[in-house]
Write a protein that binds this DNA or RNA. Structure first.
Length: 266
DNA sequence: ACCCTCACCTGCACGC
DNA sequence: TGCGTGCAGGTGAGGG
């Protein structure tokens, strides 16, 4: 995110190509280009998992990378990388390329003054590192839900920023059972969960900014999800880092959930 | 209003 | 070797 901002801030979009229709539903390739062409990128921000590329035209290009989406910076004239679904020609002789093997990522063009009204943005929970995301906020949300903790943590309108991997990780860090009903969590343990949510997210951010972002990669700059190891995720059968008990995997709400049956008994 | 299930898509790890 | 099957992830449509 930050690296992307540094690379494209202040650049003018000379042309915008939409190669895959479903990447930007409801807009033609022609209109996609017309709306973005000749505008200057004034800021790159983020709300939840949405990247907001703000333009001097008072429009905002929103992008959700989903699982496999990524932005690459490619020198103009170079061969496009695989799965390039949108290409932005910039005024510094580079192209910003949106690639997505699974075609799940989505782009939308919104008016800046209507951004907060867009349903996918307006419904989002407070940013996890904002003052608004307090332990009391979390406790309130937990108390009003009839779902399990794991399911609640995946709901971006309740708790923002965790996906399936980090929901498992946060619960492991807080030593709380993923299947426990959200409303039955004690205040004391909700405080631990609140901290754990911030901790796993901070870890992931640190890993991304220090370990795996290579801005001078000759083959094109990657702003991809970092490769890293997790404490419980994808560790079924391996010993728990705290107690050595074998990590278990249970499909819950249609998603794999990893946990230590001893550390996270309740 | 809330919450559940399933479709979306591709590469890859499996088993036969 | 090759083919079929199931799985992974985040979201939103559709239904209860």
């Amino acid at each position: 995110m930050r690296a992307l901002g540094l690379t494209i801030h202040g650049r003018r979009i000379l042309a915008a190509e939409l190669h895959l229709k479903r990447t930007a539903p409801g807009i033609s390739a022609r209109k996609f280009d017309r709306q973005l062409r000749n505008s200057v990128i004034t800021a790159v921000n983020r709300r939840g998992k949405y990247i907001l590329i703000e333009l001097d035209s008072q429009l905002v290009l929103t992008t959700h990378l989903r699982m496999t989406g990524k932005f690459l910076s490619v020198p103009h004239g170079e061969k496009l990388p695989p799965y390039a679904h949108a290409v932005f020609h910039l005024d510094d002789d580079r192209m910003l390329v949106f690639c997505d093997m699974r075609q799940f990522g989505r782009m939308r063009i919104l008016r800046a003054n209507k951004l907060a009204l867009a349903p996918e943005i307006s419904a989002l929970a407070p940013e996890p590192f904002s003052d608004e995301f307090t332990a009391d906020y979390l406790i309130r949300v937990l108390s009003r839900s009839r779902r399990s903790l794991k399911q609640l943590l995946l709901d971006q309108t309740k708790v923002l920023g965790l996906g399936n991997i980090y929901a498992s990780e946060a619960l492991f860090l807080a030593k709380i059972n993923p299947f426990k009903a959200a409303a039955t969590l004690s205040r004391k343990r909700a405080l631990l969960l609140h901290q754990a949510i911030r901790d796993v997210l901070q870890e992931a951010i640190d890993a991304g900014s220090t370990l795996n972002i290579n801005l001078t990669d000759g083959g094109g700059t990657y702003f991809a999800t970092p490769e890293r190891f997790w404490r419980v995720y994808e560790r079924e059968g391996e010993p728990c880092v705290n107690c050595g008990t074998k990590i278990r995997r249970v499909v819950h709400g249609g998603r794999s959930t990893y946990f230590c049956p001893k550390c996270q008994r309740r």
